[in-house]
């Protein structure tokens, strides 16, 4: 039964994709020449569609597929400061995300522990967290550029500041909601507080903490694309901006697909980590 549902949903996914691509192909295919006859010298100076008196249309799925194949031919080619392969751009973005996310985890998890274990600290820090948490990543960017005076560090800072909150609140929540019975047992056995934190609270709160990390890495991946579009230089976000500058929609769609796939892989990695730390009560 289960297997057949899975097979059916996979079939349905493929059908939906085929419908979508087919519709796109039909909608985007330019209709054959009906435009006015142009002076050949003039026509030579125009794009293919402008020669028909029309605007350049959306690329078709076939165009995009060909473009993706071209990008995947040499993903790590470095042809100059402003012309690097899509693999290199991805590597830059991933490095920034992992750095910003790693720093955020280093700060958020110990701090979250502290907040979760102490109602006093929780009450004191809560107003700040509530105000800082909903700020959009791009709102931080000008401030970061102005104060840090370095675009590369600024983008890492923006990832840091945006991915810290879910980890912080989730860690605090998980730590604060460890079952009282377990803590009482630890106390009865006269386990010292550090050992309690390490052997009782951490494993108990781990699923919530990793869920917070999973939310955070998703946010970090969203933020990096926006940040790189803003400051430019390198990264997959810069790639999108650059192709936008060239008005090349096929390349932009390629980048969108790549961003989606990488985001999914990052999410799956932390989803796998969640499974590892989940326990049955």
């Amino acid at each position: 039964m289960f297997a057949s549902v899975r097979a059916k949903s996979a079939l349905l996914s493929i059908l939906l994709l085929a419908l979508f691509l087919g519709g796109w192909q039909i909608a985007a295919t330019p209709t054959a020449g009906t435009g006015p006859a142009l002076d050949p010298e003039y026509a030579a100076l125009l794009g293919a569609s402008a020669q028909q008196g029309k605007q350049t249309p959306m690329p078709t799925p076939v165009d995009v597929g060909l473009r993706i194949a071209k990008h995947l031919e040499a993903p790590f080619a470095d042809r100059g400061t402003n012309d690097k392969g899509i693999g290199i751009q991805l590597a830059y973005s991933l490095a920034r995300v992992l750095l910003g996310f790693g720093l955020a985890a280093l700060v958020a998890i110990p701090l979250g522990f502290l907040i979760g274990m102490s109602p006093l600290v929780y009450g004191a820090l809560n107003p700040f967290i509530q105000v800082l948490r909903p700020i959009s990543p791009l709102a931080w960017m000008p401030l970061a550029l102005y104060t840090i005076k370095d675009s590369a560090i600024s983008s890492i800072f923006v990832i840091f500041i945006c991915s810290i909150w879910p980890m912080l609140t989730n860690t605090a929540f998980g730590v604060a909601h460890v079952r009282k019975e377990w803590l009482n047992v630890a106390r009865t056995l006269e386990v010292n507080p550090l050992r309690t934190a390490w052997r009782v609270i951490l494993p108990a709160a781990a699923p919530t903490i990793v869920t917070g990390m999973r939310i955070s890495i998703g946010i970090a991946w969203l933020v990096i694309v926006a940040a790189e579009m803003l400051v430019g230089g390198t990264g997959i976000g810069y790639f999108v901006w650059n192709e936008w500058n060239n008005l090349s929609i096929a390349n932009i769609i390629t980048a969108i697909l790549v961003i989606g796939v990488v985001g999914m892989l990052l999410d799956h990695m932390l989803g796998f980590a969640t499974k590892l730390v989940t326990y049955q009560e």
């Binding site: 402003n82 550029l145 675009s151 579009m229 803003l230 400051v231 430019g232 230089g233 650059n242």
Partner: peptide
Amino acid sequence: VVRTAGWAVIRD
């Protein structure tokens, strides 16, 4: 020579 995203960015 570094391609840049916009005038405000090149200024900053």
